Computed example of a mutant assay.
Amino acid sequence: MLIVAGKGYVDPEDRAAFLAGFEAAQRRARAEPGCLDYVVAADPVEPGRVNVYERWESREHLAAHLARTARESQPSPVMLSMEITQYEIGSSGPYLG
C-alpha cells in the first residue's frame, strides 16, 4: 500500500476556486482501479493551505493514475508551493486508540 500526503499553498483568496477546480479530478481518481482514498481539502487553520491525502493499493496503481493525470490540465489558480511525500506501507491494521 502507498500513502501520498502533504500540503500545498495557494493565495488565500483563490483557495475556494482552486478546490472547486479539483472536485471532478477527485471524483475520477476515486473511481480508478487501486484508489482507496483521494482528497484535496482546505486546511482549517491556515487560509492558503491545501492538504493532500491519497491511498493506493500499489505502486503500479499510483503510476497508472499519474500517467493519466499528466495529460490533464491543472486547475487554476495554480499552487504557489507544494510539499508531498510518498510512504510505502508494509502492513496496517485497525486503529486501537
Rank of each mutant, 00 (worst) to 15 (best):
L2G: 06
I3E: 01
V4Y: 02
A5G: 12
G6Y: 10
G6S: 13
K7M: 15
K7Q: 15
K7R: 14
G8Y: 08
Y9K: 09
D11H: 14
P12G: 05
P12D: 11
R15K: 12
A16R: 04
A17Y: 08
F18W: 06
F18Q: 08
L19T: 06
G21S: 00
G21N: 00
F22D: 12
E23D: 09
A24H: 12
A25I: 14
A25T: 15
R27H: 10
R28P: 09
A29H: 03
A29L: 01
A29M: 02
R30Y: 00
A31S: 03
A31V: 00
A31K: 07
E32K: 01
P33Q: 03
P33N: 04
G34H: 04
G34V: 00
G34I: 00
G34C: 01
L36C: 07
L36D: 08
D37H: 13
Y38H: 01
Y38L: 01
V39K: 02
V39Q: 04
V40I: 11
V40M: 05
V40F: 05
A41R: 03
A41P: 03
A41G: 11
A42D: 14
A42V: 10
D43C: 02
P44Y: 01
P44L: 02
V45H: 08
V45R: 03
V45K: 07
E46A: 03
E46H: 05
P47Y: 12
P47M: 09
P47W: 03
V50C: 01
V50Q: 01
V50A: 02
V50T: 06
V52S: 02
V52N: 02
Y53S: 05
Y53L: 09
Y53M: 14
R55E: 13
W56R: 00
E57L: 07
E57I: 00
E57W: 00
E57R: 00
S58Y: 05
R59Y: 08
R59A: 11
R59P: 04
R59G: 11
R59E: 10
E60K: 01
E60S: 02
H61S: 06
H61C: 04
H61F: 01
A63S: 12
A63P: 10
A67L: 05
R68P: 08
R68N: 11
T69I: 07
A70V: 01
R71G: 14
S73T: 13
S73N: 08
Q74E: 12
Q74R: 15
P75C: 02
M79K: 08
M79P: 03
L80S: 12
L80K: 08
S81W: 11
S81E: 03
S81H: 14
S81K: 15
M82R: 09
E83S: 14
E83H: 10
E83D: 06
I84C: 02
T85V: 00
Q86N: 07
Y87W: 06
E88V: 10
E88A: 09
I89C: 04
I89E: 08
S91A: 11
S92Q: 14
S92Y: 15
G93D: 13
G93R: 01
P94S: 09
P94D: 05
P94M: 03
